[in-house]
Design a protein around this nucleic acid. Sequence first.
DNA 1: ACTCGTGTTAGCTG
DNA 2: TCAGCTAACACGAG
Length: 266
Amino acid sequence: MPELPEVELARQVLAGALDRKIREVDDHDDWVCRPHAPGDIAAALAGGRLTAAHRRGKTLWCETEGGDGRPGPNLGLHLGMAGQLRLGDERGPRGPEQLGRRVEKPEWFRFGITFTDGEQLLLFDTRRLSRVRLDPDLDALGPDAGEVARAEFRERVGRGRAPLKARLLDQSVVAGIGNLLADETLWQAALSPSRPVDGLTGDDLTELHQALKKALRAAIKHGGVHTGEIIGHRRAGGHCPRCGAEMAHGTVGGRSTWWCSKEQAG
DNA sequence: ACTCGTGTTAGCTG
DNA sequence: TCAGCTAACACGAG
């Protein structure tokens, strides 16, 4: 599910877990918690509190404080493709109703913190692509896609020779653009996903920055990137909702990519 | 039955 | 240094 707008909603869930004393941490999943060993994260957080919830791009992290009141390690959380943060208590998780009558298998709860008041913060992820780690490397992330200023966007995205979409998906360039948001943004700007960035003009990049802001605003307003104008047309037989030309499909930056064969021609 | 994919990253190759 | 590719994770959708 999550791209930037969805992760911002998850951050708000996370904020509901702040300022409670940590009683117990379930960090048994050595894939989700890698490179830490089971018990490492629990030991680092035991008796402390989460004191602030932050997001940059699709990465979440909490500042923490130890039982002695001194600053503790940051707790990094990434939801991967299918992760959800949920609050719950001894009666079980609350939060998004599951579709259909799917039974939630216990092993899909990959990480959890139980607080002394009985509240729980739970990481639910069928696909196990989520990640929990202490002191994540935030310097490896570019500026947040929703906040990056035009000049910095142009300078960062325009650097190198990679195909434009590959550059947009690189979280160290700008943080928070996922596959769907990239296709939506490129379609809004009428730019080819495979065009090398060193061939773009300053105006192209300004246009792209505008398109990104517009696509993000719309996604936040309507509940997620899947509500984008082009998303429903990313399929075989789809047509561009602006000009009616067929949608083209290929792989760019290693990801499945759809674009208007006419308006976004190479 | 079978393929594809809203994400990341280590490790490798050119 | 840069860019592309693969594997790994494990499930739902079509």
